[in-house]
Amino acid sequence: MAFYSIGDVAERCGINPVTLRAWQRRYGLLKPQRSEGGHRQFDDDDLLRIAEIQRWIERGVPVGKVKALLDQGKAPEPGDWSALQEEMIGTLRQVSPAKLRAKIAAFCALHPVDILIDNVFEPLRNTLSLDRDTARAMRSLLDGILIEQAVSSLMEARIKAGRDALLIGWGIDDRTGLWLEAWRLSQRGWRIDVFAEPLELPHPEFFPGQQMLVWAGPAISPEQLQQLEHWQKQGYAIRAYGAANAA
């Protein structure tokens, strides 16, 4: 039987080791074995259970309620993340960066970053962008803390073994979205350097021998795909990156 370290599991499942430890210690969701040296060892059954936990969380079930559902053998149903979004809005209304920072850190300790980005952070940012004045100010505060969290994650990932890449926004306006994708990648074993300003046209010839990931938002255009294929035929290590094709 194959065994995996907590680092291996974190990379395979896209989950921060801190979250895995919380699932084990605080909620009893996982029971990894221990090596002779006392290190956690996960097997294939543990990986399947983690995938099931993720499916429940993706449907908006609070972590504290997942164990009972797993024990009952129930199948996940479509969920609702509005409760966490409302909790974030309540914190934003207090206009306290420290409290918002603590709330986001608490969420990240319980939920994979992937899931939070897709189901809490991005939907909340979209909602706040629909209004003016106060809501826009709240979104600006939120974006600042999210970028801060992303940078912290990138710095942590940089001191670990991983794959190196440049992340470049291509023809986009959402700079915070770019940093969120960098955060997502840092949780998946990538050591990312981010171009803070999106470019109208990436120039892979400027970065010979380096892996480049370009993010064009939720969907890349046919023209951009054609350009990518041209660069790839020229031998450049460049490819599209996005939530739908994150590796």
Rank of each mutant, 00 (worst) to 15 (best):
G64H: 05
I50L: 11
E58M: 06
I53Q: 05
Q72M: 15
L20V: 09
P62S: 04
C13F: 08
P32T: 11
K67I: 02
I57V: 06
L69K: 12
W81T: 10
V9G: 01
I15T: 06
Q72Y: 00
G73A: 10
W81L: 08
G14H: 04
L48P: 02
W81K: 05
G37A: 13
R49M: 10
C13W: 04
G37V: 04
F42I: 03
I6H: 08
I53N: 14
P32N: 12
P17Y: 13
G37T: 14
G14C: 14
R49C: 02
E58G: 13
L29D: 10
Q72C: 07
E58Q: 07
G28S: 03
R55C: 05
Q41E: 15
L29R: 03
W23K: 12
R40A: 08
W23V: 15
E52D: 14
L70A: 05
K65W: 00
R21E: 01
W23I: 08
A22V: 07
V61P: 00
D46Q: 13
W23C: 08
W23G: 15
S35Q: 10
P17F: 04
I50Q: 07
S5A: 00
R40Y: 13
A75G: 00
D8P: 06
Q72K: 15
D80N: 11
N16Y: 01
I15W: 01
S5V: 10
S82C: 06
E77A: 12
E11R: 15
V66L: 06
V63A: 02
E36G: 05
T19M: 02
G37Y: 11
G38H: 04
N16E: 07
K65Q: 12
H39I: 10
G37R: 14
N16Q: 05
V18G: 03
L70Q: 07
D43L: 02
D43T: 08
R55G: 06
C13N: 04
T19Q: 02
G7V: 02
I53A: 10
I50Y: 06
V18Y: 01
R34Y: 10
E52N: 11
W56N: 15
G14N: 13
S35G: 15
R49P: 00
Q72E: 15
